[in-house]
Amino acid sequence: MKKLTSNSFNAQKGFTLIELVVVIVILGILAATAAPKFIDLTGDAKTSVMQGVQGSVNSAINLVHAKALVSNQTGATGEVLVNGEYYAVKYGYPAAAGAGTPAGTTGNGWGIDKLIELDNGSAITYATAVFTHGQASDTANCTVTYSDATFASSVVTAAKSTIVTSGC
């Protein structure tokens, strides 16, 4: 019969807990640096940018509408003064595109496209109140569109923004 001695425990092979922890930490660091190269999050980022643009448009709608109500500019045409500039309004909501330059006369002024003033460096392009992400995979489907307020049957339908992010 074999006798167990204290030397038999030293003969066992395996990794210590510290060695295993070090290997796990190294694998975690490698995974953290390599994963972003394999996971493409640009579509999500562009979608988030367009959601931010829609939020800016909605804030501009609310700001101008409040100013129009206070200054009694709720007719088919009008203008409100915001931060020293005149903006065209229709039924108390910002116009999609203002006519002419800010002059302080009814019917002239900037529309919502000037009110937002997006930085061209952000790759957001806009004209006549259609805000498009210029670097989207499909720029026709990565947009925020602004619609003027309408008047029918003595009821004003509020201006609104709609977002399409299927092509971001």
Rank of each mutant, 00 (worst) to 15 (best):
L4E: 13
T5Y: 08
N7F: 10
N10S: 14
N10Y: 14
A11T: 05
L20R: 08
V21W: 10
L27N: 08
L27P: 07
I29A: 13
L30R: 04
A32R: 00
A34N: 09
A35H: 02
P36M: 00
F38R: 07
G43W: 00
A45S: 10
A45G: 07
A45E: 15
T47D: 13
M50V: 08
Q54R: 08
Q54Y: 04
Q54K: 12
G55H: 05
S56I: 09
V57S: 01
N58S: 10
A60V: 15
I61N: 04
I61L: 05
I61K: 09
N62L: 09
L63V: 04
H65K: 00
H65G: 05
A66H: 10
A68L: 04
N72I: 05
Q73G: 07
T74F: 08
G75S: 14
G78N: 01
E79Y: 05
V80I: 03
Y87R: 06
A88P: 09
V89W: 05
K90E: 14
Y91T: 00
G92V: 12
Y93D: 06
P94D: 05
P94F: 02
P94T: 05
P102V: 11
P102N: 10
G104N: 04
T105D: 11
T105F: 12
N108I: 15
G111P: 01
I112D: 11
I112H: 03
L115A: 05
E117A: 14
L118K: 07
S122M: 15
A123P: 03
F131T: 05
N141F: 00
T143L: 04
V144T: 06
T145A: 14
S147Y: 08
F151D: 12
S153C: 01
V155R: 03
A159R: 00
K160F: 13
V164M: 12
T165H: 07
C168E: 01
